[in-house]
Design a protein around this nucleic acid. Structure first.
Length: 864
RNA sequence: GGGCCCGUGGUCUAGUCGGUCAUGACGUCGCCCUUACACGGCGGAGGUCGCCGGUUCGAAUCCGGCCGGGCCCA
């Protein structure tokens, strides 16, 4: 990378990005544990290792990397860890699919190993993508939640919360997926629209409507609204359940909607969340009709063993036969489903493990965190306020962190391992001591495992060095970046766990990014066919272009539509910037120059002030996480200010051998150096390549540009110089002249300066004189210009006579037109804006064209 | 039914604690191959800032209502 080489004509992103990826060293982005620089710890989201990084991840990571790189250049000791949230159902399902087995076909440990192997190979694939995207991950702080060193911390956190009373075991209704055969938390329930049937039937004389006839065996009451006239005086009666014959009470409750169905609803244990309410409130009995596999239990009598869907059909058939089914109507409803497999969830009472939720404590911590954008705070607030019951953390699966608990077979006492024994698998390992209560050595290990969110909700504790004792040294983290889709899960659980384990908020700031939508404005999905992968974009336009799209596509926090145009215009900016750099290097190399040459020319001082303004804008935008504003400011400076105005203005000076070119060279070099630093967080490959030609090492090891001195005087005058030149170019354009065509002498009067170092003259290819005093112009009335769009419609047949009369008006009247004019003895009103008077000017006896620009007068002589 | 976000030229988008010609990109039209760049330069056309009402000297921006879209939750 010798600085003496010229830049190649074309910027080849694929070659350049590949080369720098191979050159950069991992160690350069490691967090320094012994540094005394201010720490900046990022609680990076640990993605699920599916094997492919999707565009939403890429978008999210772009934000993180912009910040990590900016913070590093700013002198912060940055930790950008990379975690992998491994456990969970999708991998189990994938393993079952690949091997054509179910989890019960092989020993538990063998099944786990298959899951681990698949996960590790997926992680390896995803690591490659992270590197290809140029993300400056701290690989010395990588963590993998399925490996012992991590999940022993998960187990430790479980034991700490267990002994602190946060965790308890209880029989309670939970959401249950019968396909996955596991309990799930509310956060894992997705609501899906579904077309179903509302069935009306005769319930021992009461007309009842239900969508779940298969739950008839689990019916424990019938409820009506207390004010419902149809059921006056019926409360308290006992009814016989059709087909099954058990007796249930008819109760009243204001939560019953009298306008839905027949106004009478059967309460079953459990059809939905409302049933749980009623069951608790009215202290009803518990009848469990569906088991963990989704089959009918023995209380379903002759339907026992049937799948619930088959049972529904059978019961409806039997109702028809007994002529108690009165009518059926279609109904649009939203049904809770397992978010992983989309199977409708059942609510069933189960012995499960729960974490207590303390809404006040969580909200107190949430309020201490800065939410960006701030309205995202409302999402967690709404979620916390409507929590129905505690967090169910036990799962009946295999590939997850084991719950580290045994029960004494003799006396039922719960036994936990010592801290130094962790991690344990209680289904394999044995307690090291006999039962403290009865001395027995016969134990059964807890077979349930933990919710995956129990792993990932200690990510911040893990990276800040939590060891189970109090508040870690590096806690809280400075930043949590994540999407708004997981506020109610990852953000919520992390706050809960941090409060429970440390008593503190987990982060200073949470930066919430939006979702990536397809080009058609809808969520990307395979079925819609609107999926775009990061690999595809990187392949076609490079990682830097993708990164620019992420920065500029939307304001921080709002959803972003994927858009090829933005990617293409991003790569165009790189091409433009490359050509700017190429031109600058060509000029710098053409002649030796003094690097400390003072910037005395107006244009040079002007450019430096514009650069100072840009540095300030970009810095402020980054501090406020406004990446779109930062990148826009960079592009505007490079393209509009530097390329289109400054370079065009000083080209002549650069081509010359005049000493004044040194100032321009110095300014250009400063501009390129500073621009590379500003671009480095956004387009690290491009910035590095560009910077390498300066021969000053890696741009990523350089400091962020400090705030530069401002020069308002040069800025004001320079703006005027630029405007004057632009206007005179427009003048040439209007006259059909090529922009580099020679033009006659130009004199500029009433300007606040008299010396532009000849830049305007060379830019316009004309002799240019600057005068601070006003011109001595002789003004003469010239042609009258009529506006036919006004004159025609207003005067019709008189138009020609009107124009003739106007032309012969005295000059004073032309400048201030009368209200009416005499045409052949007729008074005709003069329409507004029907004509305007053109003037001609003479300067020193020569006719000149005149332009007025911001109070400055430019006169243009004809070419002699 | 509740909460939140959004509705700006053909398309996407900035601005939204009120104040001169409403930002940029893509597209479009005209001129220009000017020794960095035609993936370029210069110039133009194109907007009742969703609708209605209110506050104000002044509203894309504040308030109320309505319509439409999205997300989260019942």
């Amino acid at each position: 990378m010798s600085p003496s080489l010229d830049l190649p004509k074309n910027y080849e992103f694929s070659e350049v990005e590949r080369r720098w990826q191979d050159t950069w060293r991992d160690e350069d982005t490691y967090f320094d544990p012994v540094s005394d620089r201010p720490k900046f710890i990022i609680d990076t989201p640990p993605p699920y290792p599916t094997g492919t990084f999707h565009i939403g991840n890429a978008f999210n990571w772009c934000y993180i990397d912009f910040i990590a790189r900016y913070r590093r250049m700013n002198g912060d000791n940055v930790m950008f860890p990379q975690g992998w949230d491994c456990h969970g159902l999708p991998t189990e399902v994938k393993v079952e699919e690949i091997n054509g087995i179910t989890k019960n076909d092989v020993p538990r440990e063998e099944f786990r190993k298959m899951c681990r192997d698949l996960t590790l190979s997926n992680i390896e694939k995803m690591r490659r993508t992270l590197r290809r995207m140029g993300f400056s991950v701290d690989w010395s702080h990588e963590y993998i939640t399925m490996l012992p060193e991590y999940y022993k911390k998960t187990q430790l956190s479980f034991l700490r919360m267990l002994s602190a009373g946060y965790i308890y075991q209880s029989e309670h209704p939970v959401n249950f997926c019968t396909r996955c055969e596991t309990a799930i938390a509310f956060a894992e329930v997705a609501y899906e629209p579904r077309e179903t049937t509302l069935n009306y039937f005769d319930f021992d004389g009461v007309d009842v409507a239900t969508t779940r006839p298969e739950l008839l065996a689990a019916c424990v009451a019938v409820a009506v609204h207390p004010d419902d006239e149809r059921y006056r005086n019926m409360a308290g009666r006992n009814l016989t359940v059709p087909l099954f014959g058990h007796r249930v009470p008819l109760i009243t409750d204001p939560a019953v909607d009298p306008s839905f169905g027949s106004g009478a609803v059967m309460i079953c244990t459990f059809g939905d969340k409302q049933d749980v309410h009623w069951w608790k409130q009215h202290k009803l009995e518990l009848r469990k009709a569906i088991d963990r596999q989704g089959r009918m239990t023995t209380i379903a009598g002759k339907y026992a063993g049937m799948k619930s869907a088959d049972c529904r059909k059978a019961i409806l058939e039997d109702m028809k036969e007994q002529q108690i089914l009165t009518r059926q109507e279609p109904l649009e409803q939203r049904v809770g489903a397992c978010w992983r497999c989309k199977t409708p969830i059942e609510i069933m009472s189960e012995r499960q493990w729960f974490v207590k939720i303390d809404p006040e404590a969580i909200m107190k911590a949430a309020r201490e965190i800065e939410w960006i954008p701030d309205h995202m705070f409302l999402r967690i607030e709404n979620w916390v306020q409507q929590m129905e019951w505690d967090w169910c953390i036990s799962r009946q699966r295999v590939f997850a962190t084991p719950i580290p608990v045994w029960f004494c077979k003799a006396c039922g006492e719960m036994v936990v391992p010592a801290e130094e024994e962790l991690p344990v698998d209680p289904t394999v390992d044995r307690p090291s001591k006999p039962c403290p209560r009865c001395g027995s050595r016969d134990f059964s290990g807890e077979a349930d495992v933990l919710d995956t969110w129990m792993d990932s909700s200690i990510s911040v504790l893990n990276v800040t060095g939590w060891d189970g004792n109090g508040v870690p040294l590096l806690f809280p983290a400075e930043l949590r970046p994540q999407g708004h889709d997981i506020i109610r899960t990852w953000a919520f659980y992390t706050i809960l766990r941090s409060v429970a384990l440390t008593g503190k908020r987990p982060w200073d700031t949470i930066l919430v990014n939006g979702m990536v939508l397809g080009e058609d404005g809808y969520k990307m999905s395979k079925s819609r066919g609107n999926v775009i992968t990061p690999e595809e974009i990187v392949e076609k336009h490079g990682a830097d272009a993708l990164r620019q799209w992420a920065a500029s596509g939307a304001a921080t926090g709002s959803d972003i539509m994927f858009n090829w145009n933005d990617v293409i215009s991003a790569s165009r900016f790189q091409t433009k910037m490359w050509n700017i750099a190429r031109f600058v290097h060509l000029q710098l190399r053409r002649h030796p120059y003094d690097r400390d040459a003072p910037a005395v020319a107006l244009a040079d001082r002007w450019l430096l002030d514009c650069l100072a303004g840009t540095v300030a804008d970009v810095t402020n935008a980054l501090e406020a996480y406004q990446f779109d504003r930062a990148l826009k400011s960079i592009r505007e400076f490079a393209w509009d200010v530097l390329a289109d105005n400054y370079i065009e203005l000083v080209k002549g000076r650069l081509y010359s051998d005049d000493p004044s070119r040194e100032g321009a060279c110095r300014v250009l070099e400063t501009a390129i150096d500073t621009l590379c630093r500003l671009m480095a967080p956004f387009i690290p490959f491009f910035a590095e390549e560009c910077y390498s030609y300066l021969g000053r090492g890696s741009v990523h090891s350089k400091e962020w540009p400090g705030l530069l001195a401002r020069d308002p005087d040069a800025r004001g005058k320079g703006d005027l110089l630029v405007k004057v030149v632009a206007d005179l170019r427009r003048y040439k354009h209007e006259r059909g002249l090529a922009l580099n065509a020679p033009m006659g002498r130009v004199a500029i009067f009433s300007a606040p300066f008299s010396d532009d170092s000849g830049d305007a003259s060379r830019a316009l290819n004309a002799p240019v004189e600057w005068h601070t005093e006003p011109p001595r112009l002789e003004k003469a009335a010239g042609d009258v210009q009529f506006n036919m769009a006004v004159v025609g419609p207003a005067l019709r047949k008189d138009a020609a006579a009107f124009m003739k009369a106007v032309r012969v008006l005295p000059e004073g009247l032309l400048a201030n037109p009368p209200a009416a004019i005499d045409i052949g003895g007729k008074e005709v009103p003069v329409p507004r804006d029907s004509f305007s008077l053109q003037f001609t000017y003479r300067l020193e006896g020569e006719q000149v064209d005149v332009r007025v620009i911001d109070g400055v007068i430019a006169t243009i002589h004809a070419i002699p």
